[in-house]
Design a binder for these strands. Structure first.
Lengths: 338, 338
DNA sequence: TTGTATGCGTTATCAG
DNA sequence: CTGATAACGCATACAA
């Protein structure tokens, strides 16, 4: 509650002097400085960041804009882990984080720029955007620096962090191909996700280079949803009795597919091999444990924040980073029976 | 970037009028109001919450203070789910959330009051505090309304949300007792957690009422840590060959204990029954699926925020809520062999 | 080395 | 119904 005014009065100096003393300016005598600091301590003074923001036009605040922050995300801990990385990163740099959750409806009510201006955030990290979210175009038009997670869009003030989804998918499919699989189903996310495009690209690329022709009827969208994945997996299994493997664009969907497989009376990995994507915690605990492409979610968040803060301070900073993925071989994949 | 000043100039009125027109005051003619709104829209005006905070002394901001926000928490999604509840709740009421992560070290650098004052948060929700965190006493002394998650401390401006941990533990133990278990190990968290005290209380209460005497050597702290729980479980199993069940104060620790049990060549639930606490997502996927006491974490967050906002608006608001828990019976418990 | 005056964007008071 | 003015807490250009 104490302000520099209070300090000034007690210390018998002007507010200007207090301000400068506390901010470490050199043009203040050691004597007054120590006196001011003394009084500040006595009064348990702490600077009002709000007032400072107003006058400096710098809030030292970063907006964390999460699309669909909800319980559904609880199974795959993606958002949480990314957040941990961001949090560690920003506190290193003495920024604070303000959390916005958004969704399609909210985006109609308040524009991106409004959202940012109201709270005077210096920059934004956006997680979970869809390609058709209205905010995405606004971000590109806006001057406010923004780093996107898993959306590879670049602009003057827009950068991104992603993992190498094409290569990740290639590793997954190559692993299956090496095990002798030829008929490999692909359960993708949805068309609004860039990662889905990328993972499909990897899937097709690897099959092609293995001399296997793409069969559209082996591919379906599971909407990144466990249940939906189960449904489409069941459908594919019914249509293709001779399928021997699945590649799923997320572990969560792999869980759904596993259920479909097991309900058909098929065994994993003896009858059907399956590979997921993400390496969520659950992946280690399914039976059998799930082979998957691991993404370092914490690192994604950490790097995203670093990138953003870099952009905030110097403009010709690199604006994108692609992290490597890793294939984690577990029990859900095996050589094809013959 | 547009301010009310800009609007005033263009609309040909004073800033006062603009302010009142935009804030829906009645003492402004319909004509000027619509004119002002028109101009505001043209200029894509959005109010500067920072300036407003300064003058109103109300930030419409709630601090979410999380102790040890890190990857370790990724397995039990506690914090994430609580956060989702809080987020939904505060956005209902048009508050924003600012995220602070703290730990023992950080608490020495900046006091609780400083942290709050700097960002002018109106209230705080605190998750993951330990009984010996210095912030805890500061919270009690502070005037800033605060709601604690799972720490049952009450004061003039302090409330809490928790679940009925005593009863939850009792349900767990009663379930085991009903299955015929008499020698029931208890892997607790640590002494700095209130929930640990409570769960122990429930454990002892239920055993006593079943006529079973408490054996201290069957009880150990697993520090809410999977590995530590595995270690102490192994220890107890070695010392007590005739133990038939475990009650663990968290699912995460139950995972550790399960590993210890299985490594001993014992089967779950045939040889050893086990009950956890929390109902984390993983609990459904272990083999066998884990019987556990379910806490509605989302609801905890939701209620916490509601409580806090209530305290912010009227002072004689209820300050605490205890939510019910639920025993979820799964495959990890069975009648005792004889 | 220190102090005075001004402004950041908004709301509130009070007079017209 | 409207407007001039002060105030919130802080930083800074300028003056002394």
């Amino acid at each position: 509650m104490a302000t520099i005014k209070d300090i000034a009065k007690i210390a018998g100096v002007s507010v200007t002097t207090v301000s400068r003393a506390l901010n470490g300016y050199s043009d203040v005598s050691e004597k007054t400085r120590s006196r001011v600091e003394q009084v500040a301590k006595e009064l348990k003074y702490s600077p009002n960041a709000v007032a400072r923001t107003l006058v400096m036009n710098k809030s030292k605040t970063i907006g964390l804009l999460v699309s669909d922050l909800n319980r559904a995300g609880a199974k795959d801990m993606f958002t949480y882990e990314v957040m941990c990385g961001i949090n560690d990163s920003v506190s290193d740099e003495d920024y604070d984080l303000i959390l916005f959750s958004t969704n399609h409806d909210k985006q109609q009510v308040k524009t991106y720029t409004q959202l940012c201006q109201e709270r005077q955030v210096e920059g934004v990290i956006m997680q979970g955007v869809r390609m058709n979210d209205t905010y995405l175009t606004e971000i590109m038009d806006s001057q406010i620096p923004c780093v996107l997670i898993d959306v590879e869009l670049e602009g003057d003030s827009v950068g991104y962090v992603s993992t190498d989804n094409v290569f990740g998918a290639q590793m997954a499919v190559k692993h299956l191909v090496n095990l002798g699989h030829k008929k490999i189903g692909f359960i993708n996310g949805h068309d609004q996700a860039l990662v889905s495009k990328k993972r499909r690209e990897g899937y097709e690329k690897e099959l092609t280079s293995a001399g296997i022709t793409i069969d559209e009827s082996l591919i379906a969208n599971g909407e990144f949803n466990e249940l939906q994945a189960e449904i489409v997996a069941r459908d594919i299994l019914t249509k293709h009795q001779d399928i021997t493997a699945f590649f799923c664009a997320s572990d969560l969907m792999a869980l759904g597919a596993m259920r479909a497989i097991q309900q058909k009376g098929l065994r994993i990995p003896e009858d059907i091999s399956i590979v997921g994507f993400d390496d969520i915690t659950l992946a280690q605990y399914t039976s059998p444990p799930l082979t998957t492409v691991s993404q370092d979610k914490y690192q994604m968040g950490y790097v995203a924040a670093k990138l953003l803060i870099g952009m905030l301070t110097n403009s010709d900073q690199a604006r994108k980073t692609i992290l490597d993925n890793q294939l984690i071989k577990r029990g859900s994949t095996a050589p094809v029976k013959r």
